[in-house]
Design a protein around this nucleic acid. Structure first.
Length: 576
RNA sequence: GAUCCCGUAGUUAAAUGGAUAUAACGGAUUCCUCCUAAGAAUCAGAUCUGGGUUCGAUUCCCGGCGGGAUCGCCA
C-alpha cells in the first residue's frame, strides 16, 4: 500500500484520458511524473509535478496547466479535500480525514507486511562475506556481511527468492600459508620448536594455536613429522576449523548463509576447464602478453605469453590472465568457474558484496558473467567502503601481522550485535564509516540505535500502563476520528515507509532504513513530549479514556519500527 | 599513471532531477511535582570549482582541484 505509487498510477491514467479527449498534449513519456511528500512547512499531503512535466509539450506556463488539472483532479477524486497550486506549478493535494482513517486501518490489517512492494518472483544469488578461510572475521568483513544480509532481507520482503551464498577460497596461496602456520604451531606444541615469527606471510595469531590444539586432539592425523605427506589432510582440517570460527562470528551477528561453495570442489570437478572451454568456444581466450601495471615503485615486471581472457570486449581495462607461471589457475579463473556455476544453477540476478579493496575486480567479473551468460544474467557488485574504528575519537590501529586486529568477537562483546548492525547500516555503503566504540555503547540520544529502540519501548509502556496487550488487534468502531497537526505529520511519515523500502530495495541501499526509522522516532519523541506542556496531549490521562485514534497511531508507529528493525536485524525490546 | 568511491553548516552525515537543502554532535538559551529527562523546545550556521543537459541540478554528463581505496602470475 504505497500511496505515492498508487496516486502516481491514478493520475497518470487521468492524464492519458485527458489526452484522448484532446484536453491536453502529453510529452513523449511520463517518466518524470512524480508524487512526493511536499516540503515540511507547506500544506498538502502529497505533491504532484504534472503541470511542470506537461508545460513544454503544451507550450503553456506550468501554472496555467496546474489550474486546468486542479479542476479535473477535484472532479475525479472524492478523497481530495483541497488542491493548492504552489509556484512554480506544483499541485499540493490534501486528503480528507476519512482517507487517513482508512489508511491507518489498512496499515493495521497489513501488520508487518506493510511496506512490502511485491515484485514478480525472481531468483537471486547474494554472495557476501566470502572471507578467506584462514581465521575469524575482522571488523572490515563485518560491514559487508551486514550489508549482504540486509539486501537479502529486503529482496525477500518484496517477494524474491534469495540464496545467501559464501564462496570459500580454500585453494590458493593464502590457505597454503595458513596451513603451514597451523603446522608450525602443532610442531611447537608437540616438539617444543618455536614458531618461526620471522617468516613473512605466515599467520602468527593466537587463534592458530587453538586450531592446532584441536587438530592434535582429533587424532585424525597421528604423525606430523612430514608436512608434505599430510598436507592435503591438514589443509582440509585447518580450513574446516577456520570456517567454524567464521560461522560462529556470523551467527553472533545474526547472519546465516544458505550455501557454502568451495573453490577446491569446483577445481576437483574440473569446472575451471569446463568454463574456459566455454569461453574458448566464444573465441574469448587467447595466448598473449599484457603490459605491466603502471604505477610507481614497481619495476620487477617480466612480460611473458600466457592464457588470457578477452575481458576488454566486455568493458574491462585489460585482458586478464587465467594461468599462473606454474600453469596452475589464477584466482580469477576459479572465480569465473564459480560464476559460471551460479549461472548454471539458473540464477538470473547475481549480487556480489565486496570490500573496498576488491573494487578494482568488478569490471573483470562483470565481463566474465556477461560473456558466460551472453549478457542474460544480471550481475551487480556492491562495494562496502572502509570502516574506521575509533575509541573516544582516536583511531584504533590494526595490524594483521601482529595478529592484534579487532575481531568481530571483540566488537560484539563490547558493543553488542544491535549497535553494530544499526551503525554499520546507517551510512551509505559507498561512504567510509567512522565507528566509535564509546558512542555506540552510550544510552543517549547520540546513539541512534538506542533512540529508535527507546521509541518502541515507550509505546509498549503506554500499552502496559493501560493494561492492554500491544499485540492485540485494535478496531475502529464508530468513534470519531480526529487528528491534530502532530499526528498528521506522523501519519504522513508512516505513509512514506513503503516508498523508503521500495527505493532501498531498488537501489540496494539499506542505509535508508535506519535513517527513516530515526526520523520516525524523532517525530514520536516530540509527540510524546507535547504531554509535558499540555495534559491534553498525554496518552494516559486520568480525566478521560485514551482515544482510540491515539492508540491506533501508536500501534502503527510500533508496527513500522518493529518491521524496520526486523529487516535490518536489530531487536526491539519492550522495556529498556 | 590508470580505475573506483567520496567532496553539503565548525564536525559527522541525509536528500527517486523539485519548492525555503534535512538532521545529529559541538556552541548559545530554556524545560524535571508530569504516562521512562535514557527525553524535549528555541537560535546561529552549508551544497569544492568551471562548463553542459533540463522548465528546474546537491543529484545526471564532461573538465579541473582536494581526500581515500585499488593496480600484479595475492585472494
Amino acid at each position: 500500500m504505497n500511496i505515492f505509487s498508487i496516486y502516481l498510477e491514478k493520475i497518470k491514467q487521468l492524464l492519458i484520458e485527458l489526452e484522448k479527449s484532446k484536453k491536453i498534449i502529453l510529452p513523449n513519456n511520463l517518466n518524470n511524473l512524480t508524487i512526493e511528500l511536499p516540503p515540511k512547512d507547506l500544506e498538502g499531503d502529497i505533491s504532484c509535478n504534472a503541470a511542470l512535466v506537461l508545460s513544454k509539450a503544451n507550450n503553456k506556463k506550468a501554472n496555467d496547466i496546474a489550474v486546468l488539472l486542479q479542476n479535473y483532479l477535484t472532479k475525479r477524486f472524492a478523497e481530495f479535500k483541497n488542491i493548492s497550486i504552489v509556484k512554480p506549478g506544483f499541485l499540493n493535494i490534501e486528503f480528507k480525514e476519512e482517507f487517513w482513517k482508512n489508511f491507518l486501518i489498512k496499515l493495521l490489517s497489513l501488520k508487518e507486511n506493510y511496506g512490502s512492494n511485491p515484485v514478480h518472483k525472481e531468483k537471486y544469488n547474494v554472495e557476501f562475506v566470502s572471507a578467506n578461510p584462514t581465521g575469524p572475521l575482522h571488523v572490515g568483513h563485518c560491514r559487508g556481511a551486514i550489508l549482504g544480509d540486509v539486501i537479502s532481507n529486503l529482496l525477500i520482503f518484496n517477494g524474491s527468492d534469495v540464496t545467501r551464498e559464501y564462496y570459500v577460497n580454500d585453494y590458493g596461496n593464502q590457505v597454503k600459508n595458513f596451513t603451514i602456520s597451523v603446522y608450525y604451531r602443532i610442531i611447537e606444541i608437540l616438539e617444543n620448536k618455536k614458531f618461526p615469527e620471522n617468516i613473512d606471510d605466515l599467520y602468527p595469531g593466537e587463534y592458530i594455536i587453538d586450531i592446532a590444539k584441536k587438530i592434535i586432539n582429533k587424532k585424525i592425523i597421528i604423525k606430523f613429522n612430514n608436512l608434505e605427506n599430510i598436507y592435503d589432510q591438514l589443509r582440509d582440517l585447518s580450513v574446516k576449523e577456520a570456517i567454524e570460527l567464521i560461522k560462529i562470528n556470523l551467527k553472533s551477528l545474526g547472519i546465516h548463509h544458505n550455501n557454502f561453495v568451495f573453490e577446491s570442489k569446483l577445481i576437483k570437478a574440473k569446472e575451471i576447464q569446463k568454463t574456459i572451454e566455454k569461453l574458448k568456444k566464444k573465441n574469448l581466450v587467447y595466448l598473449g602478453k599484457i603490459s605491466a601495471p603502471k604505477f610507481v615503485g614497481k619495476t620487477d615486471w617480466t612480460e611473458r605469453k600466457q592464457m588470457l581472457f578477452k575481458s576488454t570486449l566486455y568493458g574491462d581495462d585489460k585482458d586478464r590472465p587465467l594461468q599462473k607461471i606454474d600453469s596452475s589457475w589464477t584466482y580469477f579463473a576459479g572465480d569465473l568457474a564459480y560464476h559460471n556455476n551460479k549461472i548454471e544453477r539458473k540464477f538470473v540476478n547475481l549480487i556480489n558484496v565486496l570490500g573496498a579493496d576488491h573494487a578494482g575486480y568488478i569490471k573483470r567479473i562483470n565481463a566474465g558473467v556477461n560473456a558466460l551468460s551472453d549478457k542474460k544474467v544480471k550481475i551487480d557488485c556492491k562495494v562496502s567502503q572502509l570502516v574506521k574504528l575509533l575509541k573516544n575519537g582516536k583511531p584504533l590501529k590494526m595490524s594483521k601481522r601482529k595478529g592484534d586486529y579487532v575481531t568481530v568477537e571483540d566488537l560484539i562483546n563490547e558493543v553488542g550485535k544491535d549497535s553494530i548492525r544499526f551503525i554499520m547500516l546507517s551510512r551509505s555503503n559507498d561512504v567510509e564509516l567512522d565507528f566509535d566504540f564509546k558512542k555506540v555503547t552510550e544510552k543517549t540520544k547520540d546513539n541512534p540505535v538506542f533512540y529508535v529502540q527507546y521509541c518502541y519501548a515507550r509505546i509498549c509502556s503506554v500499552f502496559r500502563n493501560l493494561n492492554k496487550d500491544i499485540k492485540e488487534e485494535i478496531k475502529f468502531e464508530n468513534e470519531t476520528f480526529h487528528i491534530n497537526l502532530h499526528e498528521k505529520q506522523i501519519i504522513k511519515k508512516l505513509s512514506e515507509w513503503p516508498k523508503c523500502l521500495s527505493v532501498s530495495a531498488k537501489r540496494m541501499e539499506p542505509h535508508r532504513i535506519p535513517v527513516y526509522l530515526y526520523e520516525l522516532a524523532t517525530l514520536f519523541h516530540s509527540y510524546w513530549n507535547l504531554g509535558k506542556d499540555n495534559i491534553d496531549f498525554r496518552f494516559i490521562n486520568n480525566n478521560r479514556p485514551t482515544s482510540k485514534t491515539k492508540l491506533i497511531i501508536l500501534k502503527c508507529i510500533s508496527t513500522v519500527i518493529e518491521s524496520g528493525m526486523n529487516l535490518i536485524g536489530v531487536n526491539t525490546p519492550d522495556k529498556m
